[in-house]
């Protein structure tokens, strides 16, 4: 198993702060700019990276991430290009954990065994596949774990104590708690409820628990990061890219728009428990 996630969460725990996970859509708004954003993330304060694999039909994503995926696909992004981006990233960064996040069909079409081999060769540490619940573990989860790739499962507010063991069974790396029943980019209704849920999950597992969906600002990151081992920001990153575009094209300010946001979020996680 690749150990970058375990090492990074342990390092952040030693600093008594949550890890900051940043989601960015591979290929948005174009391959070169997207690669530049990816490479700039660790320096701006990202502790781990979720690299989105764009899909034509992202059923769990809100408008912000949907639009980012559409921009990426329009610019010619493919699964092979996404894997190549990770390999390129690894030429300059061998420590920051990266997971690929997306939907199953492009992987199925690529071929599961070939995908796992290609992902490991590129330097990927884990996978989050939204439409592969525990019931479908034989498809990708089990062979990925066997090959040494972390398979990170989503737990949600509907995952009760009866179901938690089912989803934790084949989970590795960390548990990703979805803060709400909803799509990416919606608003968190109760921070307290999220904290309670994180504690509940932690009573079932030794794995770190990171929270995503609905975290947009440094304050959100600070509040959620009080209880969680990690916080993930995605839609706000996609929206920052969008805000920097002119006529749909990247500008000189695109990478900076993302790194400025990430720096602010990084300060948020550093005062979560201060």
């Amino acid at each position: 198993m690749t150990t970058r996630f375990a090492d990074r969460f342990a390092a952040c725990a030693r600093e008594n702060r949550p890890a900051l996970g940043i989601f960015t859509m591979a290929g948005d708004p174009d391959p070169a700019t997207s690669t530049a954003i990816l490479k700039a993330l660790p320096g701006a304060g990202a502790d781990f990276i979720e690299l989105g694999m764009p899909f034509s039909d992202p059923m769990a994503d809100g408008p912000g991430v949907q639009a980012a995926g559409q921009r990426a696909l329009a610019a010619g992004q493919t699964l092979n290009r996404t894997l190549a981006m990770v390999a390129e990233f690894r030429t300059t960064d061998s420590d920051t954990p990266i997971l690929l996040m997306g939907y199953y069909n492009p992987i199925y079409i690529h071929g599961v065994d070939r995908f796992i081999a290609d992902a490991l060769a590129a330097g990927v540490d884990g996978l989050i596949i939204v439409d592969l619940p525990a019931e479908e573990d034989d498809e990708l989860c089990v062979p990925a774990l066997k090959a040494g790739l972390n398979f990170i499962r989503l737990a949600t507010p509907t995952t009760d104590d009866r179901r938690l063991p089912v989803i934790l069974k084949n989970t590795s790396g960390f548990v990703y708690y979805v803060s709400m029943t909803g799509i990416t980019g919606a608003a968190i209704k109760s921070h307290a409820a999220v904290g309670d849920a994180v504690k509940r999950i932690k009573s079932h597992t030794e794995l770190p628990v990171a929270v995503g969906f609905g975290i947009k600002t440094a304050d959100d990151a600070a509040i959620i990061g009080r209880d969680a081992d990690g916080v993930v920001v995605g839609t706000a990153i996609c929206n920052a890219v969008l805000g920097s575009l002119v006529d749909g094209k990247a500008t000189a300010g695109t990478v900076a728009a993302v790194t400025t946001l990430v720096s602010g979020l990084a300060s948020g996680v550093r005062r979560a428990r201060a």
Binding site: M59, A60, V130, E135, E136, R153, T156, T158
Partner: peptide, 8 residues
């Protein structure tokens, strides 16, 4: 093949 939120 659905999101975890829907599985229960």
């Amino acid at each position: 093949y659905v999101a975890e939120t829907l599985m229960p």
